[in-house]
């Protein structure tokens, strides 16, 4: 029973950690692909990809910090 409970604890704590990592990577990918699309559409290469990468990093790190902060507040309570 105790192993089942510790398994449940691991499962419940894995969510915010996964959220932090996926937020960072997904944000970078989303903005780079959007930048690539804009580059091809308006023929302004590589301005779109570079802007997308910078925006992706900013939004991604912000989301990651937010997720980590949310996790710490939740589990420090």
């Amino acid at each position: 029973m105790s192993s089942y409970l510790s398994f449940q604890k691991v499962l419940s704590q894995a969510g915010p950690a996964a959220n932090a990592s996926y937020s960072l990577i997904a944000s970078i990918l989303l903005f780079i692909f959007s930048g690539l699309y804009i580059d091809n559409h308006f023929d302004i290469s590589p301005a779109g990809v570079i802007t997308g990468m910078v925006l992706g990093l900013v939004v991604g790190f912000y989301q990651m910090v937010k997720a980590v902060k949310y996790k710490s507040k939740k589990y420090l309570k």
Partner: peptide, 17 residues
Amino acid sequence: PIEVMGLFVKPFALTMR
């Protein structure tokens, strides 16, 4: 704007992963 863009990151992460 960062928060609004962040709204779309979550479903995108789920889609791609």
